[in-house]
Amino acid sequence: MPAPEPPVDLDTAEHGALVHLPRVTDDAAVPTDPRRSDVDEWGRSERMRALARQLYDPVYRHLFRAEWEGLDKIPTDGGALLVANHAAAIPSDAPVIMHGIETELQRPVYGLADNLFKSLPFVGTMWSRVGGVTAHPDNAYRLLREQHQLVLVFPEGSKGPAKHYSQRYRLRRFGRGGFVEIAMRAGVPVVPIAVVGAEESMPILLNIPQLAKAFGLPYAPITANHLLFGPLLGSILYLPAKFKLRVLDPVHFDIEPDLPRYSKSRVMDEAEAIRQQIQEALFDMLRTRESVWFG
């Protein structure tokens, strides 16, 4: 009969060296996760995103020939709220910004969009697979504060793309400043981006409010593209306007995050100041632009 092993003093034993303690098992069983797809909680699929990047790259490079200025001002880590002007009947600026940042900085960008997207079959699903998220303060907060992501938002909403060509590069109202409040609450900077080129890629010649009402859309325009390419192709083909994007200095709000309430007047002032900055940058860029098509 083998001699019993001498008792080991657990307190003095070298940590994990001498004694084989039974492995500590949690009370609850380890949750299993038999996922089959890579669709994340936001509906984004990195595989779909990669495919979309591949398909979109020629558009980005050869049709719009996007050119960035100040891309280094976009933080390489941590959350930030990207804010840009919004234009073209079917906005061409969101994919350009998202594609540009993802390919240049290797950071995913989540684009906040009107819930109209989500209610449209196919469009809504595709949009969410490539990084679109319904614009809801909770979504923005979670992405920015808890997941430290880049979030793109167009504070003009649908008023930007809905404007007539004669109003190009004149920024609409920046909503009710909700984007500033979210950035304050999430404790992240706002990074303004001025985009030149989108306006001319699908300019609106005529708005038909009756048609918009009939289909429950925010606006239903006739564009130059419709005249050139017909009603169907004209709704998806862009004119080859030269894109120039200027990233402005990030705006840090010196204010405590997670407050239950932020001063509405401060929020509105900050929103207006950011709007002014983008507006001035646009005028500056347009002054030096020699051609709509060649920049």
Partner: peptide, 10 residues
């Protein structure tokens, strides 16, 4: 369940 909804309801 509506298109306007946040991804997560608290």
């Amino acid at each position: 369940a509506q298109p306007e909804d946040p991804v997560w309801f608290r």
